[in-house]
Amino acid sequence: MPRALLLLLLPAAALAFPDGAPIDVCVKARRNQPHHGQARPRVDAPPYSVTASADTYSPGDKISVVITSLDGTPFRGFFMQARDAASDEWLGAFEAAENINLLPECSSITHADNKDKLQATLIWTAPAQGMGNVYFTGAVVQQYDTFWADLVAEVARAVRQ
């Protein structure tokens, strides 16, 4: 490949998926992993936390899922999905919000811009029928080739005094 062409392609690779994960991420073999060329997920502890307000639901319940920088390191993207804890099937729906793209086909949500973020609050709504346990899993992207995958939200528990 000529060097000039390679240099022209590099900026395009760096800007890929600025408006979030494509719908086919829901059915890719590497679940919860961005498909960013040859880049693979980091295996060290992420500088981000993912916290859910609950892990049980009743019809129509709303659960918040918050992605937060632990040390001021911004992130540029995310992909989160809700799954039934018993069947591992997609479950419920996230609510639309500013700078968010929904992937309702697989109960998922992703970023809508690649601007630096220190926090993102996502609201999930339980299905109209049924009750049970849910978990939230996905990925947080610091940069195109720096991301953590298969993160599972911790559930915020009230501290008893």
Rank of each mutant, 00 (worst) to 15 (best):
Q33I: 02
Q33D: 05
Q33S: 11
Q33A: 09
Q33N: 06
P34W: 10
H35V: 13
H35A: 15
H35F: 11
H35P: 01
H35I: 13
H35N: 13
H36M: 05
H36R: 04
G37W: 03
Q38A: 13
Q38W: 15
Q38V: 14
A39H: 09
A39M: 07
A39Q: 06
A39C: 01
P41K: 00
P41C: 02
R42K: 12
R42S: 12
R42A: 12
V43P: 00
V43Y: 13
V43C: 07
D44G: 11
D44F: 01
D44N: 15
A45F: 09
A45D: 12
A45M: 13
P46F: 02
Y48L: 06
Y48M: 08
Y48V: 03
S49Y: 04
S49V: 06
V50W: 10
V50L: 15
T51E: 15
T51I: 15
T51G: 13
A52E: 07
A52V: 09
A52H: 05
S53Y: 08
S53F: 08
A54N: 14
A54Y: 08
A54E: 09
D55T: 08
D55I: 05
D55K: 10
D55W: 09
T56H: 11
T56F: 09
T56W: 08
T56K: 07
T56Q: 07
Y57M: 14
Y57K: 13
Y57L: 15
Y57N: 13
S58H: 11
S58A: 10
P59D: 03
P59C: 09
P59N: 03
P59W: 02
G60N: 11
D61H: 13
K62T: 09
I63F: 02
I63A: 06
I63Q: 01
I63H: 04
I63C: 04
I63V: 12
S64L: 06
S64C: 00
S64D: 11
V65Q: 08
V65H: 05
V65M: 07
V65N: 07
V65R: 06
V65A: 05
V65G: 03
V66D: 01
V66N: 01
V66F: 00
I67E: 00
I67Y: 10
I67N: 01
I67C: 03
I67P: 03
T68G: 02
T68R: 15
S69R: 09
S69A: 07
S69W: 03
L70P: 01
L70Q: 09
D71I: 12
D71Q: 08
D71T: 11
D71K: 13
T73I: 05
T73H: 01
T73Q: 05
P74M: 10
P74W: 03
F75P: 10
F75W: 04
R76S: 07
R76W: 00
G77F: 05
G77V: 02
G77T: 01
